[in-house]
Each structure stands twice: as C-alpha cells, then as structure tokens.
C-alpha cells in the first residue's frame, strides 16, 4: 500500500452534502476487473454531458482549481460498498479527502488504499470553503504524524482523529492482510476451539 506522511497542496472544493458512491463512480463503470483507470470516470455524470463533452461549471473541469486534496460536504461516500470509489478518487490524483462526516464503508476503503479521509468540524470545513472561495490556490498542509491540518493562508489549523493502528499502516505502507497473516496460528486455534 502507498505510504502517507505529509502533504502540502491546493484543494479542489466540492461543497455538496451526501455525495454518494454512485456520483463518485456510477455503477455502469464498475465493469473493469483491475484497480486502475477509474479516475477518468470520477464524478462522471457531474463532470461530463451525455455527449461526453465536459461540463464547464463543474469544479474538476475548472482550471482555476487543482491539487491533491478533495474537500466535500458532510456524509461523503454514502451508499454502496464499492471500493472503486476510493480507487477512482486516488486514480484522479487525490491523496486526501476532507469532509465533516464520512460514511463508514467508504472511510474504511479509503484507508485500506492509502487515501487519507480527514474528518473536520463543520466550522473548519466552512473555513476551508471560504478560503478557497477567496483564493482558488489556497494551500492546505496535512500532517499525519501530528494529526493536524492547517490552512496556510490564515494559519487556522485543526486536529483530526485516526485509529492508531490505521495511522501506522498509512505511515509504513502496511495493509490489514499483512497484519492478520502474522496471526494465522490464532485463526486456526479459534476454528479448532469452536
């Protein structure tokens, strides 16, 4: 798994609540059998018209915005369990998603792929949207070790929570399978004891 420590980047703001996984990657694009290439259909129906021409008013099509941090409204990633949502976001070049609330399965899928989901307060989320509204190139710094996210322009910062185990996985690039496989004898003992 990809390692993550620190990131300083401009952000792409998507100030919409309840963004579900069908918006992130519609079901009709789930037919691939590899993990790569989903980025081109990220937010497909918000990003492109029926004739595949880009929708000019969608933020991913606006050259004013760039960066590796996606910032979205609350309850991001609700809906289906498709990990393709996390793959698509990552494939499109994002390393971090910030929201004031994440759906459970999405959050787990993101962490399992080295895509860092950061939950901040409604107020801090509003501060980010405000800063990006004023300066499209506003910079955020994400420091995983210290669990801190900072808006460079105003120096406002917020702490964020992350499970200590998952944090060490991200920093070291380990995944859950490595962890459990090391305890295989326990699994066999559990099965025998039943």
């Amino acid at each position: 798994m990809k390692k993550f420590e620190k990131l300083t980047s401009a952000v792409v703001p998507l100030n919409i609540e309840n963004i579900d996984t069908d918006q992130i990657i519609p079901a009709r694009f789930l037919k691939a059998t590899t993990r790569e290439g989903f980025g081109e259909n990220l937010f497909r129906d918000w990003r492109y018209n029926g004739d595949n021409s880009p929708k000019a008013d969608f933020v991913l099509n606006d050259p004013a915005y760039s960066g590796k941090i996606l910032v979205a409204g609350k309850n991001f990633g609700c809906g289906s369990s498709r990990e393709h949502a996390a793959w698509a976001i990552q494939d499109a070049g994002f390393d971090v998603v910030i929201s004031s609330f994440f759906a459970d399965i999405f959050k787990g899928n993101a962490l399992n792929n080295g895509l860092l989901p950061i939950q901040v307060t409604e107020d801090f989320l509003a501060a980010i949207f405000k800063a990006v509204g004023q300066d499209h190139k506003a910079i955020l710094t994400v420091d995983l070790e210290n669990q801190k996210v900072t808006l460079t322009s105003t120096n406002e910062s917020a702490d964020f929570e992350i499970n200590p185990y998952k944090k060490s996985c991200l920093i070291n690039g380990y995944d859950d399978i490595d962890f459990i496989l090391n305890q295989k004898n326990l699994i066999e003992a559990f099965e025998q004891a039943r």
């Binding site: 289906s80 369990s81 498709r82 393709h84 399965i105 787990g108 899928n109 399992n112 792929n113 399978i177």
Partner: peptide
C-alpha cells in the same frame, strides 16, 4: 455487513 474489495481479499 458490506465490505470493500480489499476486505474481500482479506
């Protein structure tokens, strides 16, 4: 409960 593909592999 539902899981993602990394967990399916797990």
């Amino acid at each position: 409960f539902g899981i993602g593909t990394s967990q399916v592999e797990q």
